[in-house]
Computed example of a mutant assay.
Amino acid sequence: MADPERVMGPRGGWRDLRVALVVAGEGLEARVVCSALALEPEASPDGSRFGSSGGRWVWNFGGSRAGSLDRQVLDLVSAVRPNAEGVRALVRAGHAVSVDIAGTAETGSGMSVPPALLEALATLDLPLGFTCLSGAGEPANDPMSWLDE
């Protein structure tokens, strides 16, 4: 489990953490993703939520599940790892597949991911991204965002 003192910055930690598997790509169809991951499109397993819009499909382990970062990461890893071949098939089909950790942060707040969780995520061999939302729930303006272009 993450040590709360190490997860927070000088002004506290990120709030409302959400860990998700994200699949994106042109012409993405939710039924294809659900099939690759052996999911029933109408039912969310274990209380997690998934949905899609605009070429993006998200399997969210946060939100109403509202578990700790540790719990959400371990739930995601244990749900996705058995379907590793399906994930690889999505990548071969040209879709981008990644894990995203998102939360609300204020200036000066911080969040770190303990090495044990990073190790668990590394077993999926997927890119890891972080989405920082402002208090209003909007992506924070990042003066370094031009680096991603």
Rank of each mutant, 00 (worst) to 15 (best):
P4M: 04
P4I: 10
P4T: 10
R6C: 11
R6K: 15
R6V: 12
V7W: 06
M8P: 00
M8Y: 08
M8W: 12
M8R: 15
M8K: 15
G9P: 12
G9S: 11
G9N: 10
P10F: 07
P10K: 13
P10A: 14
R11P: 00
R11F: 13
R11I: 01
R11G: 00
G12H: 09
G12C: 09
G13H: 07
W14T: 07
R15K: 14
R15T: 01
D16Q: 13
D16K: 09
D16A: 09
L17C: 05
L17V: 14
R18V: 06
R18K: 10
R18C: 06
V19Y: 06
V19C: 12
V19T: 15
V19G: 01
A20R: 14
A20H: 03
V22Y: 07
V22I: 14
V23C: 07
V23Q: 07
V23D: 02
A24S: 14
G25C: 08
G25R: 03
E26Q: 13
E26G: 07
G27I: 05
L28P: 10
L28F: 08
E29Y: 01
E29G: 04
E29M: 04
E29N: 04
A30T: 08
A30M: 05
A30H: 04
A30E: 14
A30C: 00
R31T: 12
R31Y: 02
R31V: 09
V32S: 10
V32I: 07
V33I: 03
C34P: 04
C34Y: 02
S35K: 11
S35I: 00
S35T: 08
A36T: 03
A36P: 01
A36G: 00
L37P: 03
L37G: 04
L37N: 03
A38N: 09
A38Q: 11
A38E: 13
A38M: 04
A38K: 11
